[in-house]
Amino acid sequence: MKGLLFKDLYTIKMQSTFLLLIVFLGAFLTYSNGNAGFLIVILGITIPVNAIAFDERANWDKYALTMPISRKDLTISKYVLALVVLVLGTLLSSGFMFFIHKGDPAANLAMIGGSFLFGMLLISLLLPLCFKLGTEKARLFLIIIVFGVVGIGTFILSNDRLASFSPAEASLYTVVGVIAAAIILIFIASMLLSLRIMEKKEIV
């Protein structure tokens, strides 16, 4: 597992120009728009998906499975990578929010937390598709998934609906808690689904 993560981190390090560009863009947009949350989402999606794409190009899985590495290790390592990137993205984005944007700390935390969960939801939906269809096709689904999730989210949170739903602060925490728990469950379910997919996959 450690070796697999090392490999992913080395290949990511080799795309450092791309990453620096995103970070600079992030810093700039935080300054101009006051939003650094998208950084978590972009990094959280592109890095794990790119890591799988690199493996595909090199036919790495085929080789890895001849070593003391199981299909389970291959699958779980990508979920671990996703979590690592989400956490690092969150730290970076928090830094930008508190040092570049400043503003209301509570609002900042809400935005960062929301972005983290959004990134986690998207990668949970994407990874099984990557394992099943390959990253090429899964990337096409990315657009549908993003529009779907954003559409449903906006529909639920649209103004008139929110007007009729004005919870006390305590129950607002409950709602947030329920959403967070649901997304964590989706993440776990996604991992179980990917494990099933990889267990049956013919590695050619």
């Binding site: 070796g3 290949t11 493996d55 090199a58 080789y63 003391p68």
Partner: peptide, 25 residues
């Protein structure tokens, strides 16, 4: 195992490969 095609990610060097395989085997 040595496969028909080279299966190391193509942006890595022998130096990287040593560090990766050290953590696998």
């Amino acid at each position: 195992v040595v496969l028909e095609e080279c299966t190391f990610p193509d942006t890595l060097t022998a130096h990287h490969i040593n560090k990766i395989l050290k953590n696998i085997f």
